[in-house]
Structures are given as C-alpha cells and as structure tokens.
C-alpha cells in the first residue's frame, strides 16, 4: 500500500520495494522507466492487452515508448469542482463554470473565498493550467514562460484557502470547500458521499472549454518483483472486460479498456464528449532542473517566501 505517487517513487528508487505490481501516474512512471525501475511487460502473458483503446494507447506511448513497460488502469481529467448552491448564491445562475476564468479571474474567485477554495498541491499540474489560461504552451519548460503562470497564481493567491491533494474529497462532500481544482474521480466520489450524507450538498464538476490536463494511472512491474509471473496474471485479470467494468462502476474514473462495457459512457464528467476530449492535453515529463523551478515557485506562491 502507498498513499501517493511521491511516497511510491521514494520506495521504488530505494529498490526492493517488495511490490509485484504498482500503479503510478504516467508522468511519474516515465521518470521511473528512465531510472530503470520497471521490467518490460511480457505481452504474450497478457492476452487481454488487446482490449486497450488504440487512441489512448497512442497518447500514453508519448511517455512509455511503444507501451513497453505499462498497461493503463484508469484515466481522468483535472478540472473545476464546485458546490452548486454556494456558487449560485455568490455568483448567480450564470457563473462561468465551464471557463478557467472562474479560478484565475479575481472577480470570480474572490467571491468564493469565504466558503473555501482548494487547489491541488501539485505544481506540475496547476502551473500548466495557468499557462493554458494565459494562452501559453502549457507544457513549457522556459523559466520566463513559467514565471507568467506563477505571477497569475500570485494574483489569485489571497483568495485560495488551502493547497492539498487528498483533503479535497472530504472538504467538498462536507461543504467545507465550495470551489476547487481537483481530479475528476475524486470530485465524483465527493458528490456521491455528499448525496449519501443527505445534507443537501451538491457537488458539480466541469472540464473548462480552454481544455484540461488528462492523466493516466498505469500498472507496471518493478524489475526486482518477487512474483513477476503472478504480476502478469494480475494485470491480465484487471484488463478483463467484466473486471474493468466493475472497477469503473465503483471508482468513477474512465478506462482505456475498449472492450469493457462502459457504464459511465453517458456521463461526460467521466468520458468527455469527443469535442471536449480534443481539448484535453497530457502533461509532459518534467526534467529535474525544471521540477526544481516549479517546486520553488510553488513554495513562493504558497508561503510568500
């Protein structure tokens, strides 16, 4: 068990993690492949690999060449989450929920501060979104361009109440957050929890029209796995159409499994329409020196230091 990509990576990099199968995000996986953490998958042991959606496989192959080391588990988007009633109360019925300006234009976000604004604590996702809003290349590694995104974040910083990647589900479900940048499945889980709690909290999710990052959780096998054979069998089982359909029903993320009946296919929060899907972009793998710029700037944004 591991609770975040960062913790998993620390374990994998030390070696002998004891894991047979791990599920990091694609951007993390790409770096771990470079460090030589994973073994190539033996596709002959994974006949269900044929179920994968070629379109999504092609996107993933940008970071894992020829899909050698990994198989997609689920994927999702990073968009805007909001409390429907609180938003309506503060910004009216025609609030621009389908536009990143809801977050990046102070005239909107400033009215939401009092009910809680949460931002994911991941500079590698939020800064590209800020650049996208500014009309820059979201995956830019140019420090001058990154700085523009940082300046934009600093402008809305006074209106942000918390930077956190895992507290947001609870906060949205309990009504402690009314606006957030969050991961699609997390928001839908929050919406379900809010419904179960029956306190009248309604959580909405939108993929803004400018586009949004798309991310992939990938299954891979460490080189030093003790039971590589079982690991292949497990991945093959996970890619079985019925199994994947059951998982999707439960976690409400999208799957790249073309053969699985897609229960959420009608839900455009999970499976965006083809027009929206065309606006999505995948995040680049960031080289270490740029990573440092991102994280240092992020500290400035968060603490003013």
């Amino acid at each position: 068990m591991f609770d975040s990509n960062e913790v998993l990576e620390a374990k994998l990099m030390t070696g002998k993690s004891g894991y047979d199968v791990v599920v990091p995000s694609l951007t993390f996986l790409a770096r771990q492949i470079q460090a030589g953490v994973f073994m190539p998958l033996d596709k002959s042991k994974i006949p269900n690999y044929a179920n994968m959606d070629p379109q999504i496989q092609a996107l993933i192959a940008q970071n894992d060449k020829d899909n050698t080391h990994s198989a997609n588990y689920l994927w999702g988007t990073t968009g805007i989450a909001y409390n429907e009633d609180m938003l309506k109360e503060r910004l009216g019925a025609d609030a621009p929920v389908d536009d990143w300006k809801l977050i990046f234009d102070p005239q909107y976000i400033s009215k939401m501060t009092d009910c809680g604004v949460y931002i994911l604590d991941t500079p590698s996702e939020i800064l590209p979104i800020a650049l996208l809003y500014l009309g820059e290349e979201p995956n830019s590694f140019d420090p001058a361009v990154i700085q523009k995104g940082v300046d934009l974040m600093l402008k809305i910083r006074p209106h942000i109440t918390q930077f956190h990647s895992s507290q947001v589900i609870d906060a949205l479900a309990n009504g402690d957050a009314c606006l957030a940048i969050a991961w699609s499945g997390d928001v839908l889980q929050a919406a379900n929890r809010a419904e179960e709690a029956g306190k009248g909290v309604k959580v909405g999710y939108s993929i803004p029209k400018q586009g949004a990052p798309m991310w992939f959780d990938m299954m891979a096998i460490p080189k030093d796995a003790e039971h590589p054979n079982n690991a292949h069998v497990f991945i093959n089982y996970m890619l079985k159409a019925e199994v994947m359909a059951g998982i999707q029903n439960y976690v409400e993320y999208a799957s790249a499994n073309a053969a699985a009946a897609k229960p959420g296919i009608g839900d455009h929060r999970i499976y965006p329409t083809p027009e929206v899907q065309a606006t999505l972009f995948s995040l680049a793998v960031i080289p270490p020196e740029v990573d440092r710029i991102f994280n240092r700037a992020w500290t400035t944004i968060k603490t003013g230091q």
């Binding site: 990576e9 990099m13 500079p123 918390q162 968060k302 603490t303």
Partner: peptide, 21 residues
C-alpha cells in the same frame, strides 16, 4: 496549518518527495 505555515519539516518533505532531491 495553512499553506503559508512554513516549517522545516514541510520543507524537508518537499525536497525529498516533490523535488526528489
């Protein structure tokens, strides 16, 4: 703490897990 609460334990976490340094 809020995001602006700066403590060395948090900086250490960030160096280790976010910067991977």
């Amino acid at each position: 703490g809020g995001p602006e609460t700066l403590m060395i334990g948090r900086v250490l976490w960030q160096e280790f897990f976010n910067n991977r340094d």
